[in-house]
Every structure is written in structure tokens, then in C-alpha cells.
């Protein structure tokens, strides 16, 4: 992405989302639903890519942040709905609820991140995985959100424009951030933390920032998801969902925003095309991981020390 053209790309993305949105009245509901799924997965994968790809941390808990955002946002709009907010204000209420979901998720991201950054890559993976499970179990027992039977009656606010507009913004934010002198610090942390520190990069600050921004967008994606499916079940946020997002990031090429967005599109559409085989989806993902591991002999979790100059 060229520096000068970056904002124009964002505007183009938003305009395209708005324009296509006008035609959604004529499309098949199924296709519309799938296209929104695709956009939500783009938000998830591109934001996780900031953490796992660009910054080289290994989070396996992205779905936990998504769950936090989803529940926070849904509970807010349900409350607003009950309070009898006028129809005209619903876009504002929805936007505010998405932001609130994102902020809660970001705070959780900072809370998990700070104590974990002393850990080596694979341990961070285990901690974030555990965190995701804790979040899921929490919502399984959280009565105000329906506990194990799920949160019902979420208003159906997410449409094509909200979903794809958010996807465009997420891509813009991550790409614009990384494509700056400031943002090169994320990549430096990925390549060599010790060298980065010696060159004045506050490595902890960059990692916390990546976690905060990454989990913010995961939270927003959760809010979009909640108001798209109009029902949240804790079982929908198990760790296989996090793995799905990780596979999108790895398949898309770790730290390549465009590639990760394409991977998110493909890996959302593929299971839809193979609907009859949906039981085998996880086998497909596992195979993908095995193939990737064989082509990445330094190990799947070894992102920090991935490419190192032999000296």
C-alpha cells in the first residue's frame, strides 16, 4: 500500500461497501449471509495477523476476545432495545455497542498480554489458549447472558455495509500502522527482539499495542457476529474457532495483510462449497497445518526466531 494512496483505498473500500449494500435487497439471503461471514472473518484474521504475523507473537485466544466483544455488544443493544430506543437511533446504538465490545476486548488483551510477554512464543500460545477457554467457560455459566443455553433475542443489526465497512477499516488500520516508520517496530520485534531493544524499540510497548489493537478488532468482529447470527452460544467460541483464524493467518502468509484477507475469504467460502463435508472441515485444517509445518521446518510456533541470519 502506497503511503499517499492509503486513505484513498480506505474511502474506495467504504464506498464499494455502501454501493454493494444498495443491491443487497435483490440478493439471495443465503449469499448475503455468507458474504457477511466472509467480512467478519477478514476482520478477525487481519487483526490477528497484527499480533501473530507482523509482531511475531503467538496468540491462540483470538476467539476469546471475539466472545467478549460479542457478548458486551449484544447485551448493550438488547438493553437499549428494551429501553425503547427510537428506530432512528439504532445505528448509533449499534456503533456504540461495537466500540464498547472492542474496548472491553482490548482491555482483556492488554490484561492477558502484559504478564505473558516474558514468556517464549509457545508458552504465550498456551496462556492465550487457556484464556480463550476461561472466557468460554465464563459465558457458559454467566446467567445474565443466558449461560449455557446462549444469549437470545439479539437485534439483527449487522448488514452488508456494517460488515464490509468494518473489514475495510480493519485492513486500513493494520496496513497503515505497519507501513510507517513507527510501525516498522512491530516487524523488528518479530525479527529480533534483542536487536530491536538495542535500537531503541520499546518491545513491550509494541507487543501490548499489537495485542490491544488486535483484540479490539476481534471484539468488534464479535459484535458484528452477534448481530448477524442474532444468537450467541458459548460453544461457538471454542478453541477450534481460534485455530480457524490462526490457519487463515498462516495460510495468508504471516504478516501479509492482503494475503491474509484473501485466505479469510477462501477459508470461509470453501466450507460453504463443501457443505456436505462440513464434518471434515477440521481434517482439512489439520492437513493444511501439517503441510505448512513441513514447509516451515523451523517449527510452526517459532515465529520470533523464524528467519535468523546465520553468523
Amino acid at each position: 500500500m502506497k503511503i499517499a494512496g492509503a486513505k484513498r483505498w480506505l474511502l474506495a473500500g467504504l464506498a464499494a461497501s455502501a454501493l454493494l449494500h444498495l443491491f443487497t435487497g435483490y440478493t439471495n439471503r443465503y449469499y448475503l449471509g455468507v458474504s457477511i461471514d466472509v467480512a467478519i472473518n477478514i476482520v478477525l484474521a487481519v487483526s490477528l495477523n497484527l499480533i501473530n504475523g507482523h509482531t511475531g507473537q503467538f496468540s491462540l485466544g483470538h476467539c476469546g476476545f471475539m466472545a467478549i466483544g460479542g457478548y458486551v455488544s449484544a447485551m448493550l443493544t438488547i438493553a437499549a432495545h428494551k429501553a425503547g430506543i427510537p428506530q432512528a437511533l439504532t445505528p448509533l446504538v449499534f456503533a456504540a455497542s461495537l466500540l464498547a465490545g472492542g474496548v472491553f476486548a482490548a482491555l482483556a488483551g492488554i490484561g492477558v498480554g502484559i504478564p505473558s510477554f516474558r514468556l517464549r512464543g509457545d508458552y504465550l500460545a498456551i496462556v492465550t489458549l487457556g484464556f480463550g477457554e476461561i472466557i468460554r467457560v465464563f459465558f457458559q455459566t454467566f446467567e445474565p447472558a443466558g449461560a449455557a443455553s446462549g444469549l437470545k433475542g439479539i437485534p439483527n443489526y449487522t448488514n452488508f455495509l456494517w460488515a464490509w465497512g468494518t473489514a475495510a477499516i480493519t485492513i486500513y488500520v493494520v496496513a497503515a500502522l505497519v507501513n510507517s516508520t513507527y510501525g516498522r517496530g512491530f516487524l523488528a520485534v518479530h525479527d529480533d527482539e534483542i536487536a530491536a531493544g538495542a535500537m531503541g524499540v520499546n518491545t513491550t510497548r509494541y507487543k501490548v499495542t499489537a495485542f490491544a489493537i488486535g483484540s479490539f478488532f476481534a471484539g468488534v468482529a464479535g459484535g458484528l457476529y452477534a448481530h448477524h447470527k442474532v444468537f450467541l452460544s458459548p460453544t461457538g467460541f471454542d478453541f477450534m474457532r481460534s485455530i480457524e483464524i490462526v490457519v487463515m493467518v498462516i495460510l495468508g502468509g504471516m504478516g501479509r495483510t492482503a494475503g491474509v484477507a484473501v485466505a479469510a475469504i477462501l477459508l470461509t467460502l470453501l466450507p460453504e462449497l463443501l457443505r456436505g463435508f462440513s464434518d471434515y472441515r477440521m481434517i482439512l485444517y489439520s492437513l493444511l497445518i501439517i503441510i505448512l509445518m513441513l514447509s516451515r521446518p523451523q517449527g510452526l510456533f517459532n515465529f520470533v526466531g523464524g528467519k535468523r541470519v546465520k553468523a
Binding site: L187, A188, D191, D192, A195, G200, V201, G306, K307, R308
Partner: peptide, 18 residues
């Protein structure tokens, strides 16, 4: 200990950020 995946230009750019 260079930033192996970054270009020559970006290796210096990281340090410039300070």
C-alpha cells in the same frame, strides 16, 4: 542480529524511529 526479513532500508528505518 539484523532484522532478517526487512530490507536494508527498513533495518535503518527501525532505528530512525527512536
Amino acid at each position: 542480529r539484523l532484522f532478517a526479513s526487512l530490507t536494508v532500508f527498513d533495518n535503518v528505518r527501525v532505528a530512525m524511529a527512536l
